[in-house]
Simulated scan of single mutants.
Amino acid sequence: MTETLKPDLNRAYILEVLRTLLAIPSPSGYCHDIMSRVSEEAARLGFSLETTPKGNGILTIPGTGSAGDPAKGTIGLTAHVDTLGAMVRAVKPDGKIRFTPIGGYAMQTVEGEYCLIHTRDGRKYEGTVLSTKPSVHVYPDARDWKREEANMEIRIDEPVKSKEDTEKLGIAVGDFISWDPRTRMLDNGWIKSRHLDDKASVAALFGLLEWLARADRTPVRPVKIIFSTYEEVGHGSSHIPPDIMEMIAVDMGAIGDDLSATERDVSICAKDSTGPYDYEMTSKLIELAKREGIPYAVDIYPHYGSDASAALHGGSNIRAALVGPGVHASHGMERTHADAIVGTAALLLAYILES
């Protein structure tokens, strides 16, 4: 191992990128706006972004080639810009919307949430997610009413009383629906918002890129950063460039039950629902975290899959690992800390500069 790196990562920059990304609606399949912003920011730092047919972005950082084992090939880092959301399933006779989920979340986590309905012709309408029995003053079983798709609807903030009224707004089956992120960044470093999964990791990767550009440093091996757009529905990075031999999925670390990570830690996942991650890569990440003095935790996630999992299932012959900032209440009202995001960027920098 080389001496401690201790990069002077630009914390303010990382958090500003995160704030910008969280404000851009991007449910899986509706990522054109956020990918445009990602491309613009990459270009501002001096990097170009190649767009794949399904909308993923690939940013290549050439390696120096001056040391290391060329047989190891390119390192891939992947984080996803897509989030949970919904789609219009039907317009109900009273003008409200029945919706179908995008991504895996519990219905009670979106009850009462504000949302935007995005029409195909570019219009946006506000609404609120409610149970079909939304008031205890009216429905005696409102408290016990099961929160499931059939019992949920969206009340549109427009003067609609019928299906025809809603359709006249241009709202139709198949329109995307995004949740209000409700972002709060506190002075003490706590960050609470929807969609920290996985925009916190994307911000960490931009912190890495900003440091490389400012420090004029180049990794030994080529690095390809993949910003994926369909992770929440299972196939974000299922197809990756063939020169990638090692891939690190940069995604949120879960918190709770018998897990060790906190919101200030970098989570290193040894195994998720798809099986164990690569022994050597995981061991190296642990050793680098120790050497760099980065607070970290190693955990097992039995109800979790990542873009590295998708790449392996897609047939990629790679070694894979998973790291990311600890995030509490994932797929709900999430919270992390700036320390975990900056720590994630620092750990990834140590990995690519030493490989």
Rank of each mutant, 00 (worst) to 15 (best):
E3N: 13
L5A: 07
N10D: 15
A12V: 13
R19V: 05
P27Y: 01
P27T: 04
G29D: 03
S36H: 13
R37C: 08
S39D: 11
S39Y: 04
R44D: 11
R44K: 14
E50F: 06
I58E: 14
T60D: 12
T64S: 15
T64V: 11
S66T: 13
G68T: 12
D69K: 14
K72F: 08
T83K: 05
T83Y: 02
T83H: 03
A86G: 15
M87E: 06
R89I: 00
A90S: 14
V91W: 02
P93D: 09
K96N: 10
T109Y: 00
T109E: 10
E113L: 13
Y114R: 14
Y114K: 11
C115I: 15
H118A: 08
G127Y: 02
T128Y: 00
P134L: 10
S135Y: 12
Y139F: 13
A142C: 04
D144N: 12
R147P: 02
E148V: 12
A150S: 11
E153L: 00
I154H: 08
E158M: 07
K163R: 14
G170F: 01
A172G: 01
G174H: 04
W179E: 05
W179I: 08
P181K: 05
L186N: 07
S193G: 05
L196Y: 10
L196I: 05
K199N: 13
A200F: 03
F206H: 09
L212C: 06
A213I: 04
T218V: 12
R221Q: 11
R221C: 04
T229L: 05
I248Y: 01
I255C: 09
L259H: 07
R264L: 06
K271G: 01
K271M: 14
Y304F: 15
S309C: 13
L312P: 00
A321G: 15
M333V: 07
M333F: 14
E334W: 01
R335S: 14
A345S: 12
A346Y: 07
L347N: 06
A350L: 07
I352P: 08
